[in-house]
């Protein structure tokens, strides 16, 4: 693991991407015992609008809490891709929702696509778990935390009745993410 690894999750407000960031930060800092900082920026809207959540993970204490140059970025909507899929490192990676982002931002980084919303809706059966599918995919793609730490952090966060659903969503995202780089 590099000294400092920066991730950005972006999408529409209400899609749960801030929660996805929090879960990742918990996986790194509480479960794996490393340093993590999660931050966000959002507009005044409770739903809609573009929102982003950033997570910095390091084996050292973290000073600057925001992204400097992003290692891995997720964009769930076109607006989010236009607004937040920038500042990505050369050789870094960008994951896009295959249905909702038509125009990919240009840059010297790898672009991957997964129909995240569709997977949540059709394969898992609940659109609401799209953020967990996305989180799984990002962990599968980057290996920034272990598969187990990610799953544990997801399960800590959800009520008993939804544990199976979220576990399924996370694992599907993880496997699909992993397939993209294999």
């Amino acid at each position: 693991m590099a000294e400092r690894y920066e991730l950005r999750f972006s999408g529409a407000g209400g899609q749960g991407l801030i929660t996805a960031g929090i879960i990742l930060a918990e996986a790194a800092s509480i479960i794996e015992g490393r340093s993590a900082v999660q931050s966000q920026s959002y507009g005044p809207e409770a739903r809609g609008g573009a929102s982003k959540s950033e997570v910095i993970i390091s084996d050292q204490p973290i000073d600057y809490p925001k992204a400097t140059i992003v290692d891995a970025c997720l964009a769930m909507t076109q607006e989010a891709a236009d607004k937040y899929a920038n500042g990505i490192k050369e050789g870094g990676l960008l994951l896009l929702d295959a249905d909702f982002v038509q125009r990919a931002p240009q840059g010297n980084f790898k672009v991957y696509r997964l129909p995240i919303m569709r997977m949540a809706k059709e394969d898992i059966g609940r659109e609401i778990v799209a953020n967990v599918v996305a989180l799984g995919a990002m962990i599968g793609l980057t290996g920034v935390v272990t598969k187990e730490a990610g799953e544990q952090a997801v399960l800590r966060k959800v009520p008993e009745a939804f544990k199976e659903l979220n576990k399924k969503a996370y694992n599907m995202g993880y496997e699909k993410g992993k397939e993209l780089i294999n």
Partner: peptide, 9 residues
């Protein structure tokens, strides 16, 4: 706002 809203251990 940054320190108020960011999450750390």
């Amino acid at each position: 706002e940054i320190v108020g809203h960011m999450r750390e251990r």
